[in-house]
């Protein structure tokens, strides 16, 4: 007879794993990568590959140096790489993409303890760092082959009209490689909600409140503005990052509302085109406080007498 294993309950666990979750996210991101390839050519795919390669390699080397088992197979570094590349213009010099990836993994993620311990979203923090460091190439938005635009729709929100809806939806306009095709981003988000990887609270609250506040602040094209810029990418794939978002449903709604408010404020009252990025970075920082104020009420709580 075998030696019996003794451990405390429970004795069976669900089939989900960190890797299966990250795998689902990669799958949800893939239609947008395909869209980027069609819109911006194979350069977009190359850029994505470089970001993923640099992120995964950085993670692996870090683990070797720290003498811990390599965590590249949990796929979290690959997800960071793909999302970072989606935040870059397709024409970005590859060495800059490498610098951004190393920064995301080594500085933002691993220096603070690795997966689950970073207080900022690695891809997001890297995007902001690169925007400040490589302003020229980071804002040299690429355009689909013969799109007649000259700038990202964010810079010309005032001039958008109903005829621009379809281009905005399919991404036939300027921008960074993974933010323009709202259709595939929404598709990916729907898949993640369906698979139970994310809850819809943050994206809905974020996008809804951006719409509401943009309208309240007098944006001429509030409805179109939610398809423009990095809102879809940010709301669906970056704001829902587990580590840097609140736990409870109420907390997620508060977080989404806050991000939407900040995004609208920045978009309307500042010159920066980085509305979503800064809004999310700020919201990342207040997550612990949101958690404290929005925790679920425990079962059978007796009100203080």
């Amino acid at each position: 007879m075998n030696k019996l294993t003794v451990s405390s309950s429970p004795h069976i666990l669900s089939g989900d794993s960190t890797r299966s979750i990250m795998g689902s996210v990669l799958l949800a991101l893939s239609p947008t990568l395909l869209a980027a390839a069609i819109l911006y050519g194979l350069r977009a795919v190359l850029l994505c590959g470089v970001c993923v390669g640099a992120s995964v390699l950085t993670e692996h080397i870090w683990c070797l140096a720290a003498k811990k088992p390599s965590s590249v197979w949990d796929l979290s570094a690959a997800v960071t790489g793909v999302i970072l590349s989606f935040n870059l213009p397709a024409s970005l010099p590859l060495w800059q993409a490498v610098v951004g990836s190393v920064f995301a993994i080594a500085v933002v993620k691993q220096l603070f303890g690795g997966l689950g311990c970073n207080f900022l979203n690695p891809a997001l923090a890297a995007r902001v760092m690169m925007n400040i460091s490589f302003t020229g190439s980071m804002t040299a938005y690429s355009f689909p082959a013969d799109a007649a635009s000259t700038a990202t729709p964010m810079a010309e929100l005032g001039e958008l009209g109903a005829k621009d809806f379809l281009p905005l939806l399919v991404g036939y306009h300027g921008g960074v490689m993974g933010e323009t095709c709202a259709l595939t981003l929404l598709l990916g988000g729907a898949y993640l909600v369906f698979k139970g990887v994310i809850k819809p609270h943050i994206p809905l609250a974020f996008i809804g409140s951006t719409l509401l506040f943009s309208w309240l602040f007098g944006s001429p094209n509030a409805l179109l503005s939610i398809f423009a810029g990095g809102l879809m990418l940010g709301a669906i794939f970056m704001a829902t990052d587990y580590v840097t978002s609140p736990y409870s449903d109420l907390g997620k709604i508060v977080y989404g509302l806050g991000a939407g408010l900040l995004t609208s404020l920045i978009r309307i009252y500042s010159n920066s085109s980085e509305g979503v990025s800064f809004a999310l970075l700020i919201m990342n920082l207040v997550v612990p406080y949101i958690n404290d104020f929005t925790r679920r009420r425990p079962f059978g709580e007796v009100s203080a007498r």
Binding site: S17, T18, I21, S71, D74, S76, G114, L115, G116, C117, Y242, V243, P246, Y247, S248, D249, N291, R295, R296, R297, P298, F299, G300, E301
Partner: peptide, 22 residues
């Protein structure tokens, strides 16, 4: 066993409304 990714599923599914992660 992997590091906690703070997904919050433990808190979301606790029948007693607790937050095991915290």
């Amino acid at each position: 066993i992997d590091p906690c990714i703070r997904c919050g599923r433990c808190a979301d599914n606790c029948p007693m409304g607790l937050s095991p992660v915290e």
